[in-house]
Design a protein around this nucleic acid. Structure first.
Lengths: 339, 339
DNA sequence: CCGGGGAATGAAAACGTTTGCAGTCATTTT
DNA sequence: AAAATGACTGCAAACGTTTTCATTCCCCGG
């Protein structure tokens, strides 16, 4: 459309009859310039439709007012909620979110981090703990602060805000034990490159071990977090080793898939089989039967991560570790063990 | 951590014993420099852990390799899917996604667009048609190309990739009419600042009008796209004017909420009430009964928008309007009208 | 009336890249 | 053997801000 180049600060300065320096100050440090000059500059800027050139500013100030977020995928509802909160919260403070995904591939994560660093993010938000250690080296060298979401770093070294997956998982399993269940199966997520999944599975094992109950290897399935695979995992467990009365799922998508599979096979939930999920996504309360699950406060986590990052960027310090509660929500998908 | 500043291109150049220009070319236009020099530069760069300074590059080249996306909210599953596809597709071509949201507030959208422009996005992806016209002026002045997703611009002026909501909605309603339904209710989304919602509602009216069936005002509810409101809307319709046998919902979240409400009241779906949704989110096939709905190819839309934007940024031209199919998916939530 | 002291302004030097242009070679071509 | 070609390389000028340091301007107290 318009072929002439956009107005720049020097145009504004000329229009207002002031120097570059004054124009710059009038717009970004108003208190440093006299009232009337300030207004004049602002008017000219508005009139010309002046839009500051972020890259130039970034170059001069060495900060981009941009924060990167690196999610496994962002279409998992739980991550979507966190992304939303993150973007919203950052925007409130004039920051913008640079979003990237890595699909649970450490190499991709490293590569994409490099790109994010090139883009000059002032800070970076990551999910979980499992990653190429090289990535931390990169961040340290670049001097870019980062926050880990979802998990709690056992070493206490990294700044993180998350929940205690293992303990929550123990609690969910306890709940089933208390209902009299003794035959368990687990539909877990992929454990490779995913500490949350591993911790949740470990939690189940721990709770069962405490009562000397064994979790048979053929009673554990791994699946990706999409509905078709979730159903498939349930089908597989049923085929390989039927007879379990409780199914613990690595997340709600897996659980809802299991629910669907049961519905289509006439397995009654919770009369024949009790199912628990993890995450408490929106849909968990919408399906029938409503899902018993562990609530992971995803949006809150996003908000906290943003707040912590903003605080650090502003020079304030925050606790290295912030734990958020992961509450067990008992709904209709769990009941007393049959017989 | 490290207090000394990051290595810059001049450090690399010095280390490799070449000029700035050659170092730059060795890294970004390899074919212009001799093999051995190129390798030497690369080695030094790797050794120093050199990371190019994006802002400086953006300043010099006048492009940021960054594309902005402005979603209403991104935690709606359908938008999450598009975001994911967008981010992924852009990343494949070395672009990064700058994500912002406006929560259906035109003023916020304008404001946030300004920020995105400041950040120097090379292109912008927007959702739907309803917005402050000033926004287009802004984009035109900045000379930033944009793509509209979801809707099809009737004027054919804007570049867009979307589906024909109204027609699809007519089709869904037809489906119910064909099943013998005559008493309709609609659980619509908020129609303010949302052309998709309006078109879908209009489609229902159109289909009914064609058979001289009236849609009573008290048989229309508006709700936001979250489960609690969805249930509330259904409850309200039932209270205000019971007796309808078909419920058309503005999207799947609304439909699943209705499903949940019906389940808790003992209303059988589809025996007593047929329900159709819109979007075909993942969960639509996972709930019981599985939802009859219109499939909106959200991920594909994200991919196409990315591809179109990349093409345009590369100087190729694309069709101004690209329509994607919105297919009716008949599942278990619709059946013959009772009696 | 002078000098002192802020407050407001301006000149110019960063910030770290890319790139047009002009050189320097080693090959070819005539 | 001279000249022309072409492949590499380097110099230096952008790109559009912010910010340091000086300077100017005004007002006030002495």
């Amino acid at each position: 459309m318009t072929r002439r180049t956009n107005p720049k600060l020097s145009d504004v300065a000329r229009g207002a009859g002031v120097s570059l320096a004054t124009a710059s100050r009038a717009l970004s440090e108003p208190e440093l310039v006299r009232g009337d000059t300030r207004e004049r500059v602002r008017e000219v800027a508005a009139m010309l439709g002046y839009v500051p050139h972020g890259a130039a500013r970034a170059l001069a100030t060495r900060e981009s007012r941009t924060v990167g977020a690196l999610f496994p995928p962002v279409d998992n509802p739980i991550f979507a909620a966190a992304t939303q909160a993150l973007a919203h919260e950052l925007a409130m403070s004039g920051y913008t979110l640079l979003l990237a995904t890595h699909e649970y591939d450490p190499a991709a994560e490293l590569q994409v981090t490099r790109t994010l660093l090139e883009r000059g993010v002032d800070g970076l938000v990551l999910v979980g703990l499992d990653r190429d250690p090289e990535l931390y080296r990169l961040l340290a060298q670049a001097g870019v602060p980062y926050e880990l979401m979802w998990s709690l770093d056992p070493s206490g070294f990294h700044y993180c805000v998350g929940v205690a997956h293992r303990i929550a998982s123990v609690r969910a399993t306890q709940h089933l034990l208390d209902l009299g269940h003794r035959e368990f199966a687990v539909s877990a997520g992929r454990t490779a490159h995913n500490d949350r999944t591993r911790e949740r599975l470990a939690g189940v094992r721990e709770a069962l071990a405490a009562r000397a109950i064994e979790l048979r290897p053929d009673r554990v399935a791994q699946a990706e977090f999409v509905l078709p695979q979730a159903r498939e995992a349930c089908r597989e467990l049923l085929a390989r080793s039927p007879g379990f009365t409780a199914l613990v799922c690595g997340n709600d998508v897996l659980a809802i898939g299991a629910l669907a599979e049961c519905a289509s096979r006439g397995i009654r939930v919770p009369e024949d089989l009790s199912i628990v999920g993890f995450d408490d996504i929106d849909m968990a309360s919408g399906v029938t039967p409503a899902l018993t699950t562990v609530r992971v406060p995803a949006a809150e986590m996003g908000r906290r991560a943003a707040a912590r990052m903003l605080a650090r960027l502003a020079g304030r310090d925050v606790e290295r570790t912030e734990e958020l509660p992961a509450e067990l929500i008992v709904r209709a998908s769990t009941g007393p063990a049959p017989r």
